[in-house]
Amino acid sequence: MTEAFWALGRASGVVLLLLMTVSMLLGLLTRSGRPLVRLPRFGVLLAHRNIALLSVVFLGVHVVSLLLDPYAQLKLIDVVVPFGAARAPIAVGLGAVALDLMLAVAITALLRRRLGHRVFRVVHWAAYVLWPIALLHGVTAGSDGRSLPFLALSAFTATAVGAAVVWRMTDHFVEYRRIRTEPAR
């Protein structure tokens, strides 16, 4: 049974990496204001929101399964307060930092209309910090974190998110940007 918790903890971690990567890509696409092939703009936004919320659910599975796993030696406080864990404090602590940031991003997104756009936007930027921290946590804390398949998956997701961030910083990222910045005649 204890082996099952370990397996679930690892599997949910891999699923989390995939969900968080897709959420980042869809979030960036939402910001660009562009549709995705046949998916309209509001569809991209809803897909981003739902996949991000799904990753919060998988984060719950990830944390609970590792709390129940005796080998991980994880205490409840290590889940939220970083760098105090008995086993691999730095690697597990990165996970705690990512969890804290993800909860902040999720809660402010859900309360967006009550908190106002400015608070939502500033906290939402934490996603750019949270995603690489979570990836680093996967590589350092995962028992197969340095295995070839996981490193390959990590490199693939990092390339995808990195490319999207580079696109984000280019001039014509936002739809209609070209026509909006055209000098008036």
Binding site: G33, P40, R41, F42, L45, H117, E175, Y176, I179, R180
Partner: peptide
């Protein structure tokens, strides 16, 4: 003062068009 022309509302409501700047 807040609208940035991201176009979600124009997809959801038939009565809303989109001007040439979006």
């Amino acid at each position: 003062t807040r609208c940035r022309g991201r176009g979600m509302c124009t997809e959801l409501l038939t009565g809303l068009g989109r001007d040439e700047w979006g």
